[in-house]
């Protein structure tokens, strides 16, 4: 065997107009074949209405060691949530 086919990440949009979601990965020589394989592997039971295929090497991922600096700052900013605010019952739904 001369060369491994590159790895692709597969994203699928489900029936109801939601975002594309990552569903898994597969090997394929090019985008067209990746699309064919994705259809065969991930949509055999009408799981989706649209497919994206992206070469895995083209994805930049945050590293676990950055988890603190990246996500901890949000922890103290509870005022970003509606539940932070007291709305008197008399005001009704807001």
């Amino acid at each position: 065997m001369s060369k491994d086919w590159p790895l692709w990440e597969i994203f699928i949009r489900g029936q109801h107009g939601l975002n594309h979601r990552h569903v898994g990965s597969l090997h394929a020589p090019d985008a067209e074949m990746a699309m064919n394989h994705a259809r065969d592997v991930y949509t055999r039971r009408k799981e989706g209405v649209s497919i994206w295929v992206v070469k895995s090497v083209d994805i930049t991922a945050s590293s676990p060691s950055e988890k603190g600096p990246l996500f901890d700052p949000a922890e103290s900013k509870t005022y970003r949530h509606p539940t932070f605010y007291d709305i008197p019952d008399e005001v009704g739904h807001m």
Partner: peptide
């Protein structure tokens, strides 16, 4: 498997190593 790889490489060369498009 090799033929598909060779085909993919040739296509990429023709596109001038074009970006593979995936969006809808």
């Amino acid at each position: 498997r090799d033929a598909l790889t060779a085909h993919a490489e040739k296509q990429a060369q023709r596109r001038g190593e074009g970006v593979l498009q995936a969006a809808e």
